[in-house]
């Protein structure tokens, strides 16, 4: 029964990875930008939460009310200034600038905070669990994060398929010049897509900060796991990303059950296996980008 417990935990952990992956996937899918500072931005969101919560006397669980809007604005402004400037200069520049940003953020957090780990205080929620039977209990926080992840993915899917701005985002992603010819202000649309993406990054960072402890250098593994979820699931598919996140979460969870130090390695190995035998991912019909 220990395996069923690990499986359930893994599936729920997969929700966190899928939530984290959707910001990475969106930025790449819409504007072809790979953000190597993706994980570090999520960690910045978590740090921002532990700064604003005591100041505003908010319960920890409500941190997203403040942090997510800040990151949405940051996403829009960041796209219209820095990200667009790197896109205009080609993919190499986007990679180098975001990698530089990642190193700068990590070292700045080290200097301004310390190497100690923190976590967002969510009170009794951190230990609350639903007991199914003597072997299986489901942590309420993990379940809540999973639900938030699925709702976010459904929300983005609906936004992209049903709304005007969603249609504009898809049009610009498919063929920027044709969209421009039809009167789309693509920079504004890119800005909104980036606001959406960075907003989900903040949400993922907060979820991670409540679920686990974090330190200034936690961002690197956040990026790697998000990326693995995207590739395992298949590039360019949001539902594939959820599937990829769940595969990664289950693998890590089962690996950790065998030996606590095998979890992350098991995830990396499944990623490399998918790359070897099915580089288009679980849901991917497209060629690997």
């Amino acid at each position: 029964m220990i395996w069923v417990g690990a499986l359930v935990q893994g599936v729920l952990l997969g929700g966190l990875y899928a939530l984290s992956a959707c910001g990475l996937s969106l930025l790449y899918g819409v504007m072809g930008a790979i953000n190597l500072a993706h994980g570090d931005l999520a960690i910045v969101a978590a740090y921002l939460a532990i700064i604003v919560i005591p100041i505003l006397h908010l319960p920890g669980i409500l941190a997203f009310v403040i942090v997510v809007p800040v990151f949405v604005v940051l996403g829009y402004v960041g796209q219209r200034t820095l990200i667009q400037a790197t896109l205009d200069r080609g993919q190499l520049t986007t990679l180098l600038v975001s990698f530089g940003a990642s190193i700068i953020i990590q070292n700045a957090l080290l200097e301004l905070s310390s190497a100690d780990s923190h976590s967002i205080d969510v009170g009794s929620l951190v230990t609350a669990s639903i007991t199914v039977n003597s072997d299986i209990s489901i942590a309420v926080l993990s379940l809540a994060i999973f639900v938030v992840a699925v709702v976010t993915l459904i929300g983005i899917e609906l936004l992209l398929s049903r709304t005007t701005i969603g249609r504009l985002i898809r049009a610009v992603a498919d063929d920027r010049e044709a969209a421009q010819l039809s009167g789309t202000r693509y920079r504004h649309v890119f800005g909104i897509a980036a606001a959406l993406a960075i907003g989900t990054v903040a949400l993922a960072g907060l979820a991670f900060g409540m679920y686990s402890s974090f330190s200034p250098t936690s961002g690197s593994t956040r990026l790697l796991f998000a990326f693995e979820a995207v590739v395992i699931g298949g590039l360019g598919s949001l539902w594939g990303t959820l599937a990829g996140g769940i595969v990664l979460g289950v693998t890590q969870s089962i690996g950790s059950t065998i030996d606590p130090s095998y979890g992350v390695l098991a995830g990396h190995l499944v990623f490399l296996l998918v790359l070897a035998v099915r580089p288009s991912g679980i849901a991917g019909a497209r060629q690997a980008a």
Binding site: Y28, I34, Q91, E228, L272, A288
Partner: peptide
């Protein structure tokens, strides 16, 4: 290289990092 060359550009970059961590 057989594994990593299946990805391009930025995804190649992150994959090299995954290999290092593994």
């Amino acid at each position: 290289s057989w594994l990593l060359f299946r990805l391009r550009g930025g995804y190649f970059a992150i994959a090299t990092w995954v290999v290092a961590d593994a």
